[in-house]
């Protein structure tokens, strides 16, 4: 595998292309171009509610009162900058046999951040393992793209385990403004993904789960007597692996992925699961296409 470089011209051309596609074809449907649900003193009508004493008379809908003699108050969207938080997993499991998984995750993070910055959204990146290990502060404007890419480029993998809940906790406990949280990880957290995503949801963030995995992790093929070592916790397990065990492993992996998809469906969240050997730009286009049809 060639030495990964997020700053080379080829990569930047791809990012620009993706940004253009995002703007022209999937306008307002991928990330930050959506409005927040904040209702307030905007100019775009949202809906009506019943008048309550103390409400501002200026927002009464006099036309409806004239027709139906009902006092209804007009409500408007309040325009607000979208905040995009990218939580990037750099734990040991992301670089077990090679750095392809982490490199793929970095490319995704870079592309999504680029698109957001291009749309004048605010973007922050947090790299985490057992806890946050590096942060790129909240930034706005396309002029910050190169420094953001440099940050991702220089991001080193951590030796520690994955703790999704602690990473998400660190984000919400800083009382950050609500926004879209792109959680890029393999999600190999013994505590599961749900507590971390629940935490984000409770704090009114919009989580987007992106699971990156190696195909060998989904469908291992080795058999025999082995001592399995968890690369993060260093826990060991001696076992004899045969075809039946492999079959059950694959079922467990698929079940876990299905749980993630079911959770996201249930809570109206976006979920993307991808092996690390596909081109990242193709994945992003697919994500855009899906977002367009879903929305």
């Amino acid at each position: 595998m060639p030495e990964p470089n997020l700053l080379d011209q080829e990569f930047l051309r791809k990012l620009e292309y993706l940004s253009l596609v995002s703007r022209r074809v999937f306008r307002g449907q991928l990330l930050a171009q959506r409005r927040t649900r904040q209702l307030g003193a905007g100019i775009e009508f949202a809906d009506h509610r019943e008048y309550a004493p103390g409400d501002d008379y200026r927002y009464l809908d006099w036309h409806i009162y004239a027709r139906h003699e009902e006092l209804l108050l007009k409500r408007f969207h309040e325009e607000e900058d979208l905040h995009v938080y990218i939580l990037l997993d750099v734990s040991r499991s992301m670089v077990l046999e090679n750095e392809r998984k982490l490199w793929f995750a970095k490319q995704l993070a870079a592309a999504l951040a680029y698109i957001a910055l291009a749309e004048m959204d605010r973007v922050a990146i947090m790299a985490f393992a057992a806890e946050p290990v590096a942060e790129y502060p909240l930034t706005r404007g396309k002029g910050k793209v190169l420094s953001m890419l440099r940050f991702l480029q220089e991001l080193a993998p951590a030796r520690s385990a994955t703790d999704l809940r602690r990473a998400c906790g660190a984000l919400v406990h800083r009382r950050a403004k609500t926004g879209v949280v792109l959680l890029i990880s393999d999600f190999y957290d013994p505590a599961g993904f749900a507590p971390a995503v629940d935490l984000l949801r409770y704090h009114r963030h919009e989580p987007h789960l992106i699971q990156v995995y190696e195909r060998a992790e989904a469908e291992p093929s080795f058999v025999g007597d082995v001592e399995l070592v968890d690369c993060e916790s260093r826990a060991r397990d001696q076992a004899t692996i045969d075809e039946a065990v492999l079959r059950r492993y694959r079922e467990a992996f698929r079940r876990y992925q299905e749980q993630m998809r079911a959770y996201c469906r249930e809570h109206g969240l976006a979920c993307t699961q991808t092996p690390a050997d596909v081109p990242f730009d193709r994945l992003l286009l697919e994500m855009m296409r899906r977002a367009g049809t879903v929305e």
Binding site: E217, E232, D237, Q238, A244
Partner: peptide
Amino acid sequence: LRVRLRRREVATLMFWQEAFQQRRLTAWWR
């Protein structure tokens, strides 16, 4: 040489442990 097990590092044990739950060979049987 063979009774010394091959060591293999994996990304996580969570799926393996689930797979082993149904049939786990005890050490003495191994």
